[in-house]
């Protein structure tokens, strides 16, 4: 396997899915984010979003907290230290991959 292929193979596939990548990006920027905010920003359906959240939670990249704000139930999500480290690694991998691609001029 050559170096470029190795780089592609090494990409974290749990994050690399577009919807999960977007979720991780948002959680990376916010200390704690509500489900409604994620729903608005990702444009996913509730079921779809819940599925992706479950996948990330199983991978220990995010943690989910269900609580109340007054009488209103709310679901708060935050990125775990493992998830933060994985996302930072993923961004570096993505950058290396993008830099290794030939330019459109060549």
């Amino acid at each position: 396997m050559n170096r470029e292929t190795q780089r592609v193979a090494a990409i974290d596939r749990l994050i690399h899915e577009p919807s999960r990548m977007l979720i991780m990006s948002i959680l990376y920027a916010g200390e704690q984010v509500g489900f409604l905010y994620l729903l608005n920003e990702t444009g996913l359906t509730k079921g779809n979003l819940s599925n992706h959240i479950s996948r990330l939670e199983q991978g220990n990249y995010i943690q989910v907290e269900k609580s109340f704000r007054g009488k209103v139930p709310q679901t708060l999500l935050s990125i775990t230290p493992q998830g933060r480290s994985a996302f930072e690694t993923y961004r570096k991998q993505l950058k290396l991959l993008a830099d290794s691609l030939p330019s459109s001029d060549s």
């Binding site: 990376y28 920027a29 916010g30 200390e31 704690q32 984010v33 509500g34 489900f35 409604l36 905010y37 994620l38 729903l39 608005n40 704000r69 007054g70 709310q74 708060l76 933060r84």
Partner: peptide
């Protein structure tokens, strides 16, 4: 914010 913003846009805590 709890009355106006959170029900509309959702909640985001202070950034890391």
């Amino acid at each position: 914010k709890a009355r106006l913003t959170y029900p509309r846009t959702g909640y985001v805590a202070a950034p890391h």
